[in-house]
Amino acid sequence: MNVNPLDDPRLTAMGLLAEVHAGLIARMQPALSASGLSDIDFETVLRLGRSPWQRLRMTDLAAQTGLSTSGVTRVIDRLERDGLVERVACSSDRRASYAALTDAGRARLEAVLPVHLRDIESCFTGLLSDDELTAFLATLRKIRDVVRPCATAGTASAAAATARAGEELHLPRQPQQPRR
């Protein structure tokens, strides 16, 4: 029996994923625009806000966002001009620096999050039962860990993995954040 490759469920899975992603981005855009943040600005501020000490090495931030190092530098330059982020020198490695969320950045994030979370609830997570959401998140993490293994670079989860590998961390213990 010949199966038409155009009917392959793998194509359907990719198509549905692309449609859902585009639709969610379109639904989230008004709240982000009202806050004065672009998609990448919001992602950057959110990742910093959810990271230990609300900061990440610039290289880890680039890995998490999928931006090049020059791309993340441009984003941080813009956010720094707006007073939402500041650069902090690394005390143990002069070549490295951190992007850190400022009080103004935290306030901007806290202002947009209630609307953003309502949008997520109304057109995404609220459509799923608790069990469906748990399974969906596990599935997304499984796929993410293959296609973007650096997406958690510099987070508490990555730091715990580093500590388990026997490398010394130079920061005090921080409570583990939920995985993204």
Score class of each variant (00 low, 15 high):
residue 40 I to A: 01
residue 72 V to R: 01
residue 41 D to A: 00
residue 98 Y to S: 02
residue 93 D to Q: 08
residue 137 L to Y: 10
residue 115 V to N: 11
residue 60 D to Q: 10
residue 116 H to S: 13
residue 91 S to V: 15
residue 132 E to R: 09
residue 46 L to N: 02
residue 16 L to K: 06
residue 133 L to W: 12
residue 98 Y to E: 03
residue 79 L to F: 00
residue 76 I to V: 15
residue 110 E to C: 04
residue 52 P to I: 03
residue 134 T to S: 09
residue 56 L to P: 03
residue 71 G to I: 06
residue 53 W to Y: 11
residue 115 V to P: 10
residue 70 S to Y: 08
residue 105 G to E: 02
residue 47 R to Q: 08
residue 133 L to H: 10
residue 67 L to I: 09
residue 58 M to N: 13
residue 107 A to G: 03
residue 112 V to W: 02
residue 67 L to N: 07
residue 53 W to M: 10
residue 23 G to A: 01
residue 108 R to P: 00
residue 66 G to V: 02
residue 90 C to V: 11
residue 119 D to K: 11
residue 33 S to T: 12
residue 92 S to R: 12
residue 137 L to W: 08
residue 137 L to D: 09
residue 104 A to Y: 05
residue 65 T to E: 04
residue 83 G to F: 08
residue 124 F to V: 15
residue 139 T to H: 13
residue 86 E to I: 15
residue 97 S to H: 13
residue 90 C to I: 08
residue 85 V to D: 06
residue 18 A to Y: 06
residue 115 V to G: 11
residue 70 S to A: 11
residue 81 R to D: 14
residue 23 G to Y: 02
residue 75 V to N: 01
residue 74 R to H: 10
residue 93 D to R: 07
residue 80 E to C: 13
residue 87 R to T: 08
residue 20 V to D: 06
residue 121 E to L: 15
residue 76 I to M: 05
residue 125 T to V: 15
residue 46 L to W: 03
residue 118 R to F: 12
residue 78 R to G: 05
residue 41 D to L: 04
residue 28 M to E: 11
residue 40 I to K: 01
residue 139 T to E: 11
residue 82 D to A: 15
residue 27 R to W: 02
residue 102 T to F: 02
residue 70 S to C: 04
residue 20 V to F: 04
residue 17 L to M: 13
residue 48 L to D: 00
residue 36 G to Q: 04
residue 92 S to V: 15
residue 69 T to E: 13
residue 27 R to N: 14
residue 37 L to V: 00
residue 64 Q to W: 03
residue 72 V to W: 01
residue 77 D to P: 10
residue 94 R to H: 13
residue 75 V to Y: 03
residue 79 L to R: 07
residue 15 G to V: 03
residue 127 L to H: 10
residue 67 L to A: 07
residue 44 T to R: 02
residue 15 G to M: 02
residue 87 R to Y: 07
residue 44 T to Q: 04
residue 91 S to M: 12
residue 55 R to I: 02
residue 37 L to N: 00
residue 43 E to G: 05
residue 115 V to F: 13
residue 65 T to Y: 02
residue 74 R to M: 08
residue 20 V to Q: 05
residue 45 V to Y: 00
residue 80 E to D: 12
residue 120 I to L: 15
residue 46 L to D: 04
residue 122 S to C: 14
residue 24 L to C: 14
residue 135 A to P: 12
residue 21 H to S: 14
residue 52 P to Q: 05
residue 65 T to V: 07
residue 97 S to D: 10
residue 62 A to F: 11
residue 116 H to R: 12
residue 23 G to R: 04
residue 66 G to N: 02
residue 53 W to V: 14
residue 137 L to E: 07
residue 131 D to F: 12
residue 92 S to C: 15
residue 121 E to W: 07
residue 132 E to Y: 09
residue 67 L to E: 08
residue 68 S to N: 08
residue 59 T to K: 12
residue 90 C to E: 05
